[in-house]
Design a binder for these strands. Structure first.
Lengths: 333, 333
DNA sequence: TTGTAAGCGTTATCAC
DNA sequence: GTGATAACGCTTACAA
C-alpha cells in the first residue's frame, strides 16, 4: 500500500489519516507518551504497521533539538588504538540509543578543525582525538565544539573532560623492565615528531638514571616505519629497543627476523599499546597495555553527563600496565 | 557576543538580523547560491563570522531531504575485516562530504533488523554487512532499507548491489597450495556455524580431488577459538590446517608454539583475509587476501549511484589472491 | 483523552 | 538581487 502523501516516504500524517486521528495522537502512540485510549492506540499501531511507517529521525531531531548521535574524530581509522576507542564508544553509546558518526581526518591535521566542526554540527556532542593538532589550535577549537571530550590530549587551559593514557609512565615502566634485565644501552624509535603522544613518551624518557644510555631514532607510527628502522637500530649498538607503539615493534621484529637477529637473545624489543595481536606473535611482544576501548566507554559517560547538564566525572589517566612476554630478556653478555 | 535569539545556539535568523537582510539571503550566501550582491554577501559573512554561526545540519537535512550520512551495519567492530571496510567506506564517502554512522550489532543477530532499520532512518542510505542473518530475514528486511548495498552476502532474489569476496575460490586456492606441497590430510577450522561466509568456504571445500582427505573441526572466528583448536588439530593427524580466517590462524599458531610444534616443519597453517598483521608474524602467515577496504570504497560508489538515481555498477566478486608466506611448506615425510 | 497549532532551522518558490 | 512565505516531518503546549 503506497503512502497517500505525494512525498517519497510515509509520514506521520499518512498514519494519522489512515487511523483517523490527529498527528499528535500518532506521535503520542509512537513515543508511548501520556495516556492514549487503548483502542485508538491499537488502530494507530495497525495503521503504522500496514503503512510500514518509520518516523523521520531528522524531523524528530529538529523538533527535539537532539539527534542521538555523537561524533568521533580520529586521525586514522587504520590504527588499532582508535578502532578500539571507536568500539568502546559505539557500544557504550548504543546502550542508550546513541549512534556514532565517524570522521577520519586521514592524518590531515590542517583539515581537522573543519572536519571536527562539520562533524559536530551533525551530532549532539563530540569525542575528539587529535594527537597532532597544535595546542593553540585546540585551545581555539575546543570551546566551539562543546560538549566535547578529549582523548589522550592534555592541554592546560582547556575546559573539557579528558581521558588519557599516561604515556610517560608507561615508557618508564618499559625502561625499568629492560634495565632490570641488565640493559644499559637502549634505543627509542620515536613516533611522529609533532605528535603529543610522542612528546609524552619523550617526557617520560628524560632524566633517566644516569647509568642508562638512550639513543633516539626517528621513526614513525606504522609497521613500515618499524621495518625500515632495523638498520639504524643495529647500527646504534644497543641491546634493547623501545618502539613508539606495537605496530612499529612488529615492523621491527619482522625486519630483524629477516636479518637473523635473535629476539630477545641478541636484542630485546618492547612495544606500546598491547594491541590485540601483541600476545600472538612469535615471539610474543613485551609491551604495556593501554585500555583504549575503556577510554571510549568512559568518553561516552562524560558525554552523557554533559548532555544531561550534569557535572562529568573526573578526568582519568590510565596507567599502562606492563605485559611481560617473550620479546624481552636478559642483556646479552 | 551572545546570540540574540533565546535558543541555545545561533541561527540563520540571528545572522540575518545582524546583517539586516532576510534569512533567504543568508541562506543563499552560506550556500554560494545564485547571485548575491557582493557588498551584502560580505556583510552576511562578517555577521556569520562574528556570531560564530554554523548552520544546523538537522534543519538542512529536513529541508533538503538529505542528511549526507550513510550507515554501516556490522556484526563486530573488533573484526579487522569490518574495520577495513569501514575505513574504505568512510574515506570514499568523505570525499563527497558524506559521513558514516556506524552500528555495531555486537553479534546479536536477532537485533540486527531493528538496528539496521533504526540506523537507516538516520541516514540517506545503508551498507549492510550481516553474515549471520538468515536469508529469509534478509529478503524481508533489505527492501525496506533501500537504498542499500550488501557486503559479502549473496542472496538470490535480493535486489541490492552486492560486493563480495569469493570465499569458495579463496579456500580452494589454499587447498591447492597445500596439495602442491604434497599435503593430503588437511583440517578445516570451521567458522561460526550459521555464518554465510563459513558456508561459502565449505562450498568451496566440497568435491575436492579424491586424493585429499579433509576433516572439519568446529571452531569459530576469533583468536581464542583458534587457540583452543590446537589439541583437536593435533589429534586429527593432519599435516595442513586451513583456518577460517587469519585471527583463528594466529590463535592456532600461538598454541602450537606453546606445544613446540614446528610450523611449517611439522604442520602447515594457512589463514584467510590477509589482515594487516599477517605478514609480520613469525612465521609470516600464508593466506589469501581479501580487499575489504576496496569493498568499502566500492560500496560507496554503488550508494552514490543509487542516491543519484543512477543505475549502480555491476556486482563484483573479488577473487582472493594467494599470499605465499612462511607458515606453509612441504608435507613432512 | 484528543485535537489544534505553533514551533524547530533551513531551503526554495515565488513575487517584487 | 532580495524578501516574504510555504514547505520539510515531528513534538508539544494549550484548548477543548
Amino acid at each position: 500500500m503506497p503512502p497517500s502523501s505525494s512525498s517519497g516516504s510515509v509520514t506521520i500524517g499518512d498514519v494519522a489519516a489512515m487511523a483517523q486521528v490527529s498527528t499528535a495522537t500518532v506521535s503520542r502512540v509512537m513515543n508511548g507518551r501520556s495516556t492514549v485510549d487503548p483502542g485508538i492506540a491499537a488502530r494507530v499501531l495497525a495503521a503504522a504497521e500496514s503503512l510500514r511507517y518509520a518516523p523521520s529521525a531528522v524531523a524528530r531531531g529538529l523538533a527535539l533539538g537532539r539527534t542521538s548521535t555523537v561524533g568521533l574524530v580520529v586521525p586514522d581509522l587504520a590504527n588499532p588504538s582508535f578502532q578500539s576507542a571507536l568500539r568502546g564508544l559505539s557500544r557504550a553509546a548504543g546502550v542508550h540509543g546513541y549512534r556514532v558518526l565517524v570522521a577520519d581526518s586521514a592524518e590531515d591535521v590542517g583539515e581537522e578543525p573543519i572536519l571536527a566542526t562539520e562533524a559536530r554540527r551533525r551530532c549532539d556532542a563530540l569525542v575528539l582525538c587529535a594527537p597532532r593538532m597544535p595546542s593553540d589550535a585546540l585551545l581555539d577549537l575546543v570551546p566551539r565544539l562543546a560538549p566535547v571530550v578529549l582523548l589522550n590530549r592534555d592541554v592546560r587551559g582547556i575546559d573539557a573532560p579528558l581521558l588519557a593514557v599516561d604515556y610517560a609512565s608507561g615508557i618508564r615502566d618499559l625502561v625499568h623492565h629492560l634495565v632490570q634485565f641488565g640493559h644499559r644501552r637502549l634505543a627509542y624509535l620515536a613516533g611522529p615528531k609533532d605528535s603529543a603522544s610522542n612528546a609524552e613518551r619523550l617526557r617520560g624518557l628524560h632524566g633517566l638514571d644516569g647509568d642508562v644510555d638512550l639513543v633516539e631514532i626517528p621513526c614513525g607510527a606504522r609497521f613500515s616505519d618499524g621495518h625500515e628502522a632495523a638498520d639504524p637500530v643495529l647500527a646504534a649498538g644497543v641491546t634493547g629497543v623501545l618502539a613508539f607503539n606495537d605496530l612499529v615493534a612488529f615492523g621491527l621484529l619482522g625486519a630483524l627476523h629477516e636479518r637473523n637477529v635473535d629476539v630477545p637473545g641478541d636484542l630485546s624489543v618492547v612495544g606500546f599499546d598491547d594491541i590485540q595481536f601483541a600476545r600472538y606473535t612469535t615471539p610474543a611482544l613485551t609491551t604495556v597495555s593501554a585500555p583504549q576501548e575503556e577510554l571510549g566507554e568512559q568518553a561516552w559517560r562524560r558525554l552523557r553527563s554533559l548532555l544531561d547538564g550534569e557535572r562529568p566525572e573526573h578526568n582519568v589517566f590510565y596507567r599502562p600496565r606492563l605485559e611481560r612476554r617473550a620479546s624481552s630478556g636478559p642483556c646479552p653478555a
